[in-house]
Write a protein that binds this DNA or RNA. Structure first.
Lengths: 348, 348
DNA sequence: GTGAAAGCGCTAACAG
DNA sequence: CTGTTAGCGCTTTCAC
């Protein structure tokens, strides 16, 4: 059975190709009866328009690309990316776009993927995870003519549209919280210092101190890489310096830190208080109720897609940016409940 | 600057469109010098062929679809899916295919996604996660003319190609291991009973007993749904029945089970021995070294893609199946090291 | 080894 | 409201 075409449907319904096209695309200028008639033969024949032909003729593929660069090794270990991907997939679906996924594992992948992404006619728009400084892939994509939205602030923001959460304020709130609880030796476990996320959260940390008229002990800042193990190791390095509270730049690192503390027999928050970032369901990873900065990961993905579609439809110039708010979720690991006599979740 | 076409390159290189096409597609019948020449102008102009036009003319999109149906809610909580996706993405990349992702969240998604998948000209092949019994989407895809590989044994295997791990044998090995260690009250935490994975592992469990000339206590079989929490709850239900060993059908459920045991003050493996399934890095989730059945998740994804490509290139008939082997990884949670005086990893 | 020409199946003016 | 027509940019016979 040879595949059906518009032509076939037109013939069967006794109308022209254009009319069928109009019906398929839900366009006006078709009489109700003709439309109903055409719709019926489409249904009975099981006709589906050919995607390639449509893309070629309309210069629109209805396809969005999600590019996750190599440094995103935590794709498998950090629930962040699955959640993000889900939000993106959901939104694509909602807006009738198809999502294609480009996981760039190494340089070799990059070489094979790059030209594929650049092919005209394949993608109507691109979502790319903000990477480390000097990310070639991002540079290259930025130069292409396909509408682009960067997930997370990129290093070079000139002329590129991006979406991000307000990392500076978020980290500031988290740190202020610890300061206000009276902790005196507040440390931080950062992500890779070459990432903008980590830099922004670092800045928020500093701002909180500045705002309180205090100066942080910089030796209490340990670098991680957003992986759990790095949080574990960072906390081990921090321990001899006797911090009484630590702000971990991701929940997963906070979990690692907790492991390190438990191994040493230290209590959270009794001996060391902890605040995380993400609000990922870590309850499954540790029994400690983690105080954390909640970022709307799924919503982030949805908004990213909507921004991208807007750029596609209304033009990518001028570049736009969208910053989402976060929320400090006070639970037990920061010691607030004990110190202040509160119980359960508290939103500030 | 208007996008470049083959025509443009042909003109600039002083040859015909066909010749450029041959060069682009690495076909023979082009003299070395002409080829070199064309290649150069392609490079200097930064020409990239149009994907839609190519698909339309060649009836090949070089695009594969990965469909994860709604019951795959564990996409975010179980590392299994990120790993699988990574293997698939890697293999697609390697074979010059682009991967598109269809996460089917609910019925509404299904309605929007189905026609998109069925569109001719979009996908050269489809990978679909095996679902629950009566999965409409799978049924529908099976009926379509696009080559299809099901991930995991489907309910109806007639005429459909699929890839799976040898769940029966794997579960049998795991259970035999517990039996051989002398446990007398061996329980099991299953996945949803409507899934083939769970059914097969159930069968393996039974076979191990049969092979040992024993009869399992069926009341020690508790149903979960592959989520951690379900493992936790299942173990709570099991505890009053005093099992001395439990085979959890996934590592994540094993972790839940461990939580339940720890809460009750019971030791693993001292009070209850445990064997999991997957060999996911759960070390981050619990301090217990889990004895488990290792399944090659990433390789599973790679093999699935390769099988699908084979079907695309050599025809989908007759249906093929590929069963991957598993390996029992003996660590500490089964109590083997204590009972047998062994240490560390032991592969059976 | 190379080029001309005929589509691939659809959209989108433009007439009518 | 409907049909005619001209492409979209490439692949692929088929001559030469």
């Amino acid at each position: 059975m040879h595949d059906l075409t518009l032509e076939d449907i037109a013939r069967q319904a006794g109308v022209s190709r254009s009319t069928v096209s109009r019906v398929v695309n839900n366009q006006p200028n078709v009489s109700p009866e003709v439309r109903k008639n055409v719709l019926r033969t489409i249904r009975t024949t099981g006709y589906h328009p050919n995607a390639a032909a449509r893309s070629l003729a309309s210069q629109r593929s209805w396809m969005l690309g999600l590019v996750l660069p190599r440094n995103t090794s935590s794709f498998f270990t950090d629930p962040y990316f699955p959640h993000l991907t889900q939000g993106i997939a959901y939104a694509c679906n909602n807006h009738n776009y198809t999502l294609s996924l480009f996981l760039v594992g190494n340089e070799e992948d990059e070489k094979k993927i790059s030209p594929r992404i650049s092919r005209r006619g394949l993608l109507d728009g691109i979502l790319v995870q903000s990477g480390q400084a000097g990310d070639k892939m991002l540079d290259q994509l930025t130069r292409s003519s396909v509408p682009l939205v960067v997930l997370g602030r990129p290093f070079e923001v000139d002329g590129v549209s991006y979406i991000d959460v307000d990392n500076i304020n978020a980290a500031k709130k988290a740190t202020q919280h610890l300061i206000s609880l009276g902790y005196q030796r507040i440390g931080m476990i950062t992500g890779a210092k070459t990432s903008t996320v980590s830099q922004d959260r670092h800045e928020g940390f500093m701002k909180a101190f500045a705002g309180a008229g205090k100066v942080p002990d910089l030796s209490l800042i340990a670098e991680g890489d957003f992986s759990e193990n790095s949080g574990y190791l960072a906390m081990q390095r921090l321990l001899p310096l006797r911090p009484d509270a630590v702000f971990a730049q991701s929940d997963i690192m906070a979990v690692g830190a907790i492991k390190a503390l438990e191994e040493t027999g230290l209590k959270v928050p009794g001996d060391v208080a902890l605040v995380g970032f993400d609000d990922i369901p870590v309850t499954s990873l540790t029994n400690i109720k983690l105080t954390t900065v909640r970022q709307p990961i799924t919503r982030f993905g949805i908004k990213a897609v909507e921004l991208l579609i807007d750029l596609i439809e209304k033009g990518a110039e001028p570049a736009r940016r969208l910053i989402l708010d976060t929320e400090l979720i006070v639970r037990e690991s920061c010691g607030a409940s004990k110190l202040l006599g509160n119980r359960g979740d508290l939103r500030s």
